[in-house]
Design a protein around this nucleic acid. Structure first.
Lengths: 243, 243
DNA sequence: ATCTTAATTTCGGCA
DNA sequence: TGCCGAAGTTAAGAT
């Protein structure tokens, strides 16, 4: 059991339920008082300390690359009831996580194998692809120049032209927040200094636009467009999808 | 076992190692192909799907408040090898996570009890306290007016005066990003409209300042200051700390 | 309850 | 590899 989970090509996760306290010293200092928790040791040596509640984030953890070593408790620690001492050290930053175990209630190791990984669909990239294909949603006569139009301070999501041939910079978000308006504002400021592009109009397009973002955008002469993702996906021909 | 983990006042976590595929339909669509994984059902009904690798983030999950129901596989599903079907639905958004279980390798429930929670130290609040105490780090003659100086759009981290008595607004970050510069810019814009404060100088202080943020700050006449957290902590008299 | 901001963010893409 | 921006961000604090 001692080193089973880190040897050879086995892909093993170890689950320990234990009464323990945890100390972290790294980018911050943190302490978990003595309580019964779940310790999850992954194959790469990383450690997760979970309680029963909260959401997916552990109470404390150490990310890979890191090494777990078990230290013999000294007399003082043993007298304090510590039976096992785990020290997890980050290989690069030197961050340390120390688990002081008082009692182990459960300990098991399970081989999992390599995970094939998550397949995602429906994020901003897809929204951008759809809007690029359906650029006329912004208005009659709109034409796509290109996606990811590069500027000195980063890529503009979509560059298009309106019916009059004037440039239009589109910033796309799933949720239209104030940050997105700021981002688009920076792009517009820069692009409008370019005599080949100016004048450039701004369009802030999102599935949902927060009132504050809308107010700020309108204040800066940026047009807001709310996108109907489902409708756009329905128009797309590659709409074969799960469920 | 069936409902043990959600009854009464027990605080229980259930651990299942199973060959399964997972589908998520909510803010995005996602699919996990058939593989052996760890399913962690927390007391609040939330579910975490972990593989052996990655960092603390599960491959897929459902956050509380949510409910887990077990559905009987229909004939087609049973023929495909599905023995159990878990459906986790978010109570508010309706997001759904479906776990199709083919084979259970391990199944155990563990009572944990209520967790006392994490004690943190060393985050931005501490940095702010330290800089307020050591405001002269910004320059000779600097004096603290107050921390969390309230404005109409939120609190400025630190308000100070320089050697000439002019107002200085300080925005503090652990990592100085472009967002922080934008934030400070908004504060400065507002404060400089106040005749009692104007003119207000801006200082962007962080443990680390990203090149783009520095460029933007300088372009807007904001001074950048890199803080040495360890040195500042060393000067602090309340430096009794674990380890 | 809603909104704002930080985070030991993590994660992916592209230069 | 490092930087930059998105994320089912999540989570904590303030209004």
């Amino acid at each position: 059991m001692d080193v089973l989970w880190c040897r050879g090509r086995l892909v093993v996760v170890r689950l320990v339920i234990a009464e323990c306290s945890v100390d972290y010293a790294g980018r911050l200092s943190a302490h978990l008082p003595l309580a019964k928790r779940l310790l999850m040791v992954k194959n790469d040596g990383s450690l997760l300390v979970h309680s029963d509640g909260g959401s997916y984030k552990p109470l404390n953890w150490m990310s890979p690359p890191c090494v777990l070593t078990t230290v013999e408790p000294d007399e003082t620690q043993a007298a304090a009831g510590i039976t096992e001492l785990w020290k997890v050290t980050h290989k690069k930053t030197g961050d340390a996580l120390i688990v002081s175990i008082h009692e182990v209630h459960h300990d098991s190791a399970h081989e999992l194998g390599v995970d094939p990984g998550l397949q995602k669909d429906g994020v901003e990239a897809h929204l951008q692809k759809l809007l690029a294909e359906q650029i006329e949603l912004l208005g009659d006569g709109y034409r796509l120049i290109r996606r990811e139009y590069m500027t000195a301070i980063g890529p503009v999501d979509i560059l298009a032209t309106d019916a009059t041939g004037a440039s239009v910079a589109v910033e796309l978000k799933r949720r239209g927040d104030i940050d997105g308006v700021e981002q688009l504002t920076r792009y517009l400021e820069l692009m409008n200094r370019d005599p080949l592009l100016a004048p450039v109009q701004g369009v802030f397009a999102a599935q949902e636009i927060k009132p504050q973002a809308r107010t700020l955008a309108q204040d800066r002469g940026i047009r807001c467009v709310v996108l109907d993702y489902d409708a756009m996906r329905g128009l797309d021909d590659s709409d074969s999808r799960l469920f």
